[in-house]
């Protein structure tokens, strides 16, 4: 303490000590005005929507919890989950293929990404929906011989729901593979070398050392993809896969209440997306272990903690401050 007073040189001429003076923060008048205007505009918009009779809130209320809507929701949810599972599994495989030293594996992986990322999802969905027009039967056997192990009609296998799942899953795999590849490449090669020097084989190294670290980079864009997927399932209504959007369309095709029904759909999509961000935050925390100090806090804690966090950290580290120089 003595050194700091020595450094300030001549003491202030005023009688009050610096720590007794009141602090006046900068006043952002422009910001306050902007906030009031924006808020007023929002109230106006909500009010006009609430009073608009064309919106038919009674229709919205009637259908919001209808059985038909819940059926659609169930399809949308399992379709999202299953398509993401296919996307993540196949995507990881393709990412590893594209990082392989084998030119054949690299080429095949690249070809897959090129095709499924390069054509519109809507085209792919319709394609799988009408695949029976290309192959009437699905057969598994040895090519160029008469030996078949399995044979079925394409139409009986590729129901609209399965076609939708295939289209969404394969398309997702193309995108996910790039996310996973970026994640794997973000891990320092020293990690692989260290694992190898301990006698870990490449597959074990990937599973135990590289992928857990890649997850930190992979999860945020993957959360994006999941949210996107939930909404993209609406596209499968073109092959009537009975997802939420298909059922909504079925209703407004009969009662012509397009806007109210779209409000019902939007409310449900919004609700689901909100729910989805919870596991994402949890996963980010799980894979952030050891990486950053903030990684151990939930988003809520992080918002509330603010400056308090830094002070607790300091006291925690003080016991090994002699050596911990980072």
């Amino acid at each position: 303490m003595t050194t700091t007073t020595a450094c300030t040189g001549t003491p202030p001429k005023d009688h009050a000590a610096p720590e007794d003076l009141a602090v006046v923060p900068v006043r952002h008048y422009g910001r306050w005005i902007a906030a009031v205007v924006a808020f007023a505009a929002l109230i106006g918009l909500v009010g006009s929507l609430a009073k608009n009779h064309n919106l038919h809130w009674d229709v919205v209320r009637h259908y919001l919890f209808a059985g038909l809507i819940f059926d659609g929701l169930a399809t949308t949810l399992w379709l999202t989950a299953a398509a993401m599972a296919i996307g993540l599994g196949l995507g990881t495989l393709i990412a590893v293929m594209r990082l392989s030293t084998s030119p054949v594996l690299y080429g095949l992986g690249t070809l897959f990404v090129w095709v499924f990322r390069g054509t519109p999802l809507l085209v792919q969905i319709i394609f799988w929906g009408y695949a029976a027009a290309l192959y009437k039967y699905v057969m598994i056997g040895i090519p160029f011989t008469d030996i078949t192990f399995f044979r079925a009609e394409t139409n009986s296998l590729l129901t609209p729901a399965i076609a939708a799942l295939l289209a969404l899953g394969l398309n997702e795999a193309a995108y996910t593979s790039e996310i996973v590849r970026a994640g794997i490449q973000s891990v320092d090669t020293g990690q692989t070398e260290a694992a190898h020097s301990l006698g870990m084989r490449p597959a074990l190294t990937m599973r135990r050392v590289v992928l857990p670290q890649a997850m930190r980079v992979i999860i945020p864009p993957l959360g994006n993809e999941t949210i996107n997927m939930l909404k993209m399932t609406a596209l499968v209504s073109v092959i009537s896969a009975h997802d939420l959007m298909s059922n909504i369309q079925d209703v407004y095709a009969q009662n012509y209440q397009v806007i109210p029904m779209l409000v019902v759909a939007s409310l449900w999509y919004l609700a689901l997306v909100t729910l989805l961000s919870i596991p994402q935050a949890w996963l980010e925390r799980r894979y952030g272990r050891g990486a950053s100090r903030a990684g151990h806090l939930s988003p809520l804690q992080r918002m509330l903690a603010g400056s308090a966090r830094t002070s607790t950290k300091k006291s925690k580290n003080s016991d090994n401050s002699k050596e911990a120089d980072r």
Binding site: D188, G190, Q191, E193, A194, A195, H196, S197, L198, G199, M200, R201, V209, P212, Q213, Y287, R289, G290, A291
Partner: peptide, 21 residues
């Protein structure tokens, strides 16, 4: 991998696995 088990290596930049204690 089998042969490497018998040879320990220490790196300039430590290369500890950051996600493990």
């Amino acid at each position: 991998a089998q042969r490497r088990r018998e040879i320990g290596m220490v790196f300039q930049r430590f290369n500890l696995f950051p996600h493990m204690t």
